[in-house]
Simulated scan of single mutants.
Amino acid sequence: MRPLLIVASVAIAIATPAAAMQHDGHAGHTAPKAGDAIAAAVAAPTRTPANVARDAYRHPAETLAFFGVKPGDTVVELWPGGGWYTEILAPLTKAGGGTLYAAAPWERGLNRIKEKQAADAATYGAVKLAEFPATGAGAKVPDGSADVVLTFRNVHNWRFGGTDKAADAFKQIFAMLKPGGTLGVVEHRLNESDDSAKEEKSGYMKKSSIVAFAEAAGFKLAGESEINANPKDTKDYPKGVWTLPPSLTEGDTDRAKYVAIGESDRMTLKFVKPAS
């Protein structure tokens, strides 16, 4: 997805990690212990300016705090694409002695992360590359090794491959996490009242669908947040979620309208792998 060049300030307000079934918001929260480290990673000078411009929509500091990410964690970022979150997670885990895996289809899904490693080994050289979903073509994230697995706007891609593909993805995530580990999901949100068939091509997913996939794999829903909500998103575009920024697939047609809406309405869900 192409970044929309909008001037925006870096969001570094930190939200309190979720308690069980917490419904979180933006303000009035005490910074978590890892808050300073997350804020420093969000403010890292190595981040791409165009990516920083999207912080107003993606709320990275609040989102990572909500998921309870700590600098010393073993973190897996699934399908990182161009590395928007990698630019934050790499310095965060490096500073705290943690480990970051970038996991995607081997190996085309990791090409842009490899480019970052080649261009800036000091920041990205320690990022481990893994295949996801694992087929044996490349190294995989070892079972029971991850403290946190994160996926940002990817579940709809797995769903495009069919319900079996999505179900298998969640099973593999469950296997890579330690008991008590966290799965953090941010996804374009389809209204529960909408036809579920829209999930097959619009890029939007129902919360109930994601919860069903996760619970079938063994996860428990531990919390949800409205950090990344956007009530201006009407979700009724012929070309799906890609009509909105940053893709703006309609080009100049109604461009001002879609820019005014901003990026999509997103659910932010925290799941846990039971400790026993």
Rank of each mutant, 00 (worst) to 15 (best):
residue 127 V to E: 03
residue 143 D to R: 03
residue 189 R to K: 15
residue 119 A to T: 11
residue 159 R to H: 15
residue 126 A to C: 08
residue 134 A to L: 05
residue 128 K to G: 02
residue 131 E to D: 02
residue 178 K to R: 14
residue 174 F to M: 11
residue 183 L to K: 11
residue 144 G to S: 09
residue 115 E to K: 12
residue 176 M to I: 10
residue 120 D to M: 01
residue 157 N to S: 12
residue 110 L to I: 08
residue 159 R to D: 10
residue 164 D to H: 05
residue 132 F to C: 07
residue 142 P to E: 01
residue 120 D to K: 06
residue 188 H to G: 01
residue 179 P to V: 05
residue 168 D to T: 13
residue 158 W to G: 09
residue 136 G to Q: 08
residue 180 G to S: 08
residue 164 D to V: 10
residue 175 A to S: 15
residue 166 A to K: 10
residue 116 K to R: 15
residue 138 G to H: 00
residue 122 A to F: 01
residue 115 E to S: 13
residue 151 T to Y: 10
residue 138 G to K: 01
residue 108 R to P: 04
residue 111 N to Q: 12
residue 170 F to W: 13
residue 131 E to N: 06
residue 145 S to C: 04
residue 187 E to W: 04
residue 173 I to V: 15
residue 129 L to Y: 00
residue 163 T to V: 13
residue 123 T to H: 09
residue 151 T to K: 07
residue 154 N to D: 15
residue 190 L to G: 01
residue 120 D to Y: 01
residue 120 D to N: 14
residue 129 L to A: 06
residue 116 K to E: 06
residue 116 K to F: 04
residue 167 A to E: 15
residue 156 H to A: 11
residue 159 R to S: 07
residue 171 K to C: 04
residue 146 A to V: 00
residue 164 D to Q: 14
residue 140 K to F: 03
residue 159 R to W: 14
residue 170 F to N: 08
residue 130 A to R: 09
residue 129 L to V: 04
residue 162 G to E: 08
residue 130 A to Y: 02
residue 159 R to P: 00
residue 179 P to Q: 07
residue 175 A to P: 08
residue 145 S to I: 00
residue 125 G to D: 04
residue 146 A to N: 06
residue 186 V to W: 06
